[in-house]
């Protein structure tokens, strides 16, 4: 390969990587927000993404919704599911040892996967093509309309989330509770409600990711959440778990690395590269790229 085509290949993979990465980022945001507020690695989060994809499927296939109403439908439905899961499965465990609630999360994950198999059968479903996939040629580079859709949707959602977290009263309450729940209560903040809101927001973002992936790959199945769930977890750790901009950055970096590895080495090494990143970050900077080493002040 000469230099020119190498460069094209590189830019092409960057484009692919950013669109994949923005999906990881959407899912990673929920991981990081939920971790931030109740210190739980919510292993069921990838399955919420799957539930979101199915809700999008129902909305487009059976209800005949277009893209925007379908994604809103999926986000609302998954948000509600998130609230119910927290209420039923995690809240009773809030004062239990951490390992107990972690195992509960794994249980919730299996529950969602196999309930979906029961309801929708294990067979993959074909996601209807809501959009004519237009392919744009920019010189030798190829971008399709779906990639643009993913990128724009993810961007809009991330800006909206940042606004909610940083500029609204509810967002301020979320930050206060994740920093110090007792002190937050002494300000008059209802901790239970704030945790519910966090689950709703995180789950809605994952659902949006699920719908976007459904549109992109045309196919969804009850176990589709496992790998992206893992990847989003890696992205959250990479950026610094509990840190919202970290999840966004971590998702994008992970997506780009995966695309570059698939493009230049082999797509079979894609997942290995992700897990290698997890191992490296845990070895050398366990607080993540944007994490600070927190010293406990007594």
């Amino acid at each position: 390969m000469d230099m020119g085509s190498l460069l094209h290949q590189f830019i092409q993979q960057m484009i692919n990587g950013i669109s994949l990465g923005s999906i990881y980022a959407l899912i990673a945001l929920g991981y990081t927000m939920i971790y931030g507020i109740i210190k739980l690695i919510n292993f069921a989060h990838g399955d919420i993404y799957m539930v979101g994809a199915y809700l999008g499927f129902i909305a487009t296939t059976y209800l005949g919704f277009g893209f925007l109403p379908a994604i809103i439908f999926a986000m609302l439905g998954a948000g509600l599911a998130g609230i119910i899961i927290e209420r039923v499965a995690y809240r009773p465990m809030r004062n239990a040892p951490r390992i107990a609630i972690l195992i509960t999360a794994i249980g919730v994950s299996f529950f969602l996967e196999y309930t979906m198999m029961l309801i929708a059968s294990p067979q993959p479903r074909t996601f209807p093509a809501i959009f004519e996939a237009t392919v744009y040629h920019l010189g030798p580079l190829v971008v399709n309309s779906q990639q643009i859709l993913i990128l724009v949707s993810a961007l809009v959602l991330m800006v909206a989330l940042s606004y909610i977290v940083n500029k609204t009263k509810a967002g301020m309450a979320m930050r206060a509770v994740s920093f110090d729940a007792d002190a937050a209560q002494l300000m008059g903040i209802n901790v239970d409600k704030t945790i519910s809101l966090t689950f709703a927001l995180g789950s809605a973002l994952a659902a949006a990711g699920g719908v976007l992936v459904g549109i992109y790959y045309n196919s969804i199945d009850p176990l589709m959440g496992m790998m992206p769930g893992m990847k989003a977890f890696i992205a959250a750790v990479l950026g610094g778990i509990g840190i919202i901009p970290g999840a966004m950055a971590g998702g994008l970096i992970l997506g780009v690395v995966e695309a570059l590895v698939s493009g230049f080495i082999s797509s079979t090494f894609r997942d290995a590269a992700s897990f290698a990143i997890l191992i490296l970050i845990l070895l050398y900077k366990p607080t993540g790229l944007l994490g600070k080493n927190v010293r406990e002040k007594v």
Binding site: A173, R175, A176, F179, D182, A183, M187
Partner: peptide, 19 residues
């Protein structure tokens, strides 16, 4: 004290008036 040490002084005071 338990101030919200990741937020600004202003934000801390605003949280005091949360209700």
């Amino acid at each position: 004290r338990h101030v919200f040490s990741n937020m600004t002084v202003m934000e801390n005071l605003q949280l005091g008036a949360y209700l």
